[in-house]
Design a binder for these strands. Structure first.
Lengths: 239, 239
DNA sequence: CGAGTACTTGACTGTGGTCAAAGCCAGTGG
DNA sequence: CCACTGGCTTTGACCACAGTCAAGTACTCG
């Protein structure tokens, strides 16, 4: 059940067998959500965190005028809201973009973990720091990258993140977002995203159709995105 | 020396006297930096984190074309790079925006803290999660807010953050940034920031001159910024 | 087969970018 | 005390990238 999480953690550090068992004991109730369901509301008090097992979710914030900004995308193996353990409530909403399955981890078990498993605690802390690193890279996209580079960068990031958990092939990956939802990630309108997708297709870099990203020229795509994956901390270092 | 840090933490949770002592023992070497000095380079291996004692610093990333995005501003009491404890190196640069004083905290002492002081560990974890919450709010600004709302929001955020550590009055605060640097925070050009600042002044909302922000109509400013400080987690809750 | 949603495209608009010149001010040196 | 310098700010004219609006097309799913 925690396979994807283990793959994600083992890509970065050693996990002892006893620690794997301790991780297994964190798991509580399992929940399924339908697509487009808002799973966590901004501000609501939380006493558990959720680990995504299947599907894709996102974090988002709304403005009064209807503008919505997606601030992160979650793939299997990601915690949706591990940060709610210390924050107690969230500053954003969390929504299922597809049908999803999650497992709940009660905060009291996380608290016990911080008392008994300092190494796992550091790994979990790392995991929230990784979220923050992705937020920073998105800030760079939103603030300074051109429209085409933003979309290209998003596709590159997801390719790399899905590869870690074995959910992307060299050729591409499933990505069941609408163009409007992509627009909400990259700070553009859906109309403009559509135009950018056409350009990316015509320049033979990447194709997005029918909920699937097909890499046509990954190196070229990474070049125009200025994608440098260091911010994903993909190498192994003891934490 | 750790006064500002204590004020920041005590705004959110109880700190026992013994914990205060433990915090004091984290402190190592003190360093001074001149304005405009890049203090930490992206990618450089780190074995200490830095707590800002005086001055203002920022995190930033560059693009090849010279575009720079500032992803966070630090005020006294903030750790510049507490996340480097688990990440081991940073995905961004850190620069002193004014003359600054910091105190170094060796990672080995932080590691010992995670073994011996679970409550402080959770507080430090909280502190990096707070950084991420600010990143998310900036993503919303960069992706969806208008130019004037972005600048207004930045001024509101700093007012609130500086108040916690006692470095802002009702009337405003010192903010020794150039207009170009503000532009690098909000994803605009310095020319446009200049136009926006004029608007804010003419609408009697806020004035920025000579490295000082003067609040003229704080409620009005917060309204056009859609500033809702929940993301700063200013209330006290046990962590 | 019809309804609803998502995608596509074109015409037009506007916010914010670019380029350039001038003004301002603090610091430095004659 | 003044001239010079360099960085920052201010303004204007013009431009372009991306937004808006609207209509039409393509798919899915009941």
């Amino acid at each position: 059940m925690i396979d994807y999480l283990l793959r994600k953690l083992r890509a970065r550090d050693e996990i002892a067998d006893l620690e794997e068992l301790a991780l297994g004991r964190l798991a509580g109730e399992i929940r399924d959500y339908p697509a487009d369901k808002t799973v966590i509301q901004e501000g609501e008090p939380l006493d558990f965190s959720s680990l995504l097992l299947e599907g894709m979710m996102c974090r988002y914030k709304d403005l009064r005028d209807g503008g919505r900004q997606i601030s992160a995308i979650h793939v299997p193996g990601d915690f949706l809201d591990l940060h709610s353990f210390t924050l107690k409530r969230l500053d954003h909403n969390v929504m299922a973009m597809t049908r999803c399955k999650v497992v709940l981890v009660p905060h009291e078990r996380l608290k016990a973990m911080t008392e008994e498993e300092p190494h796992l605690t550091r790994l979990f802390w790392f995991s929230t720091n990784l979220d923050a690193a992705m937020h920073r890279e998105w800030e760079l996209s939103l603030g300074r990258r051109s429209a085409i580079a933003r979309v290209a960068h998003l596709f590159c990031e997801l390719q790399a993140r899905l590869e870690i958990v074995g959910l992307a092939e060299e050729a591409g990956y499933d990505f069941k977002f609408t163009q409007t939802e992509i627009a909400e990630c990259v700070g553009l309108t859906s109309v403009h995203v559509n135009r950018v997708l056409r350009q990316l297709r015509e320049r033979r870099l990447v194709e997005f159709r029918g909920g699937r990203v097909t890499m046509l020229d990954r190196a070229g795509l990474e070049r125009i995105a200025e994608f440098r994956p260091a911010y994903l901390y993909l190498d192994r270092r003891p934490i």
